[in-house]
């Protein structure tokens, strides 16, 4: 039996974080209901924003956007991301907290 690279602390931490994510389902607790609801709503907003970003990148890859369109789309998506992160921070949420676990469907972002 071999164990390769287990001293690589970053990898082990990454591994534990991933295993920990198994329990990262949406929970609504009476004590933290505002934060939990904010997490659901902002998580969905960030999910939609990322879908729009992916679509914008696909159109860029296909050469379907002019420089002006790229600038406009990029600015909108960049500001939307900053606004969502700012709102999340007001509820004590980090950007990675906005990933919602949909069970067998995986994570939203």
């Amino acid at each position: 039996m071999t164990r390769i690279g287990t001293n690589d602390t970053a990898q082990v931490q990454d591994r534990i974080a991933r295993i920990a994510a198994v329990t990262d389902r949406i929970t609504i607790d009476p004590e933290t209901v505002e934060q939990d609801l904010a997490r659901v709503v902002l998580g969905l907003m960030e999910f939609l924003r990322q879908l729009m970003e992916l679509q914008a990148i696909r159109r860029m890859d296909a050469g379907a956007l002019s420089a002006t369109q790229e600038e406009k789309l990029g600015t909108t998506l960049m500001k939307a991301e900053a606004a969502i992160h700012d709102l999340a921070a007001k509820f004590g949420l980090a950007p990675e907290d906005l990933a919602l676990d949909l069970g067998p469907l995986g994570k939203t972002i």
Binding site: E53, I57, L73
Partner: peptide, 26 residues
């Protein structure tokens, strides 16, 4: 085995304009 393929992170640079932000994401 936990198997990962990794690439070095892109150098962090603050983008001022939307176009270069989108290109970074691309």
């Amino acid at each position: 085995f936990s198997v990962a393929v990794r690439m070095a992170a892109d150098q962090e640079h603050r983008t001022q304009d939307g176009r270069s932000w989108l290109k970074t994401r691309q």
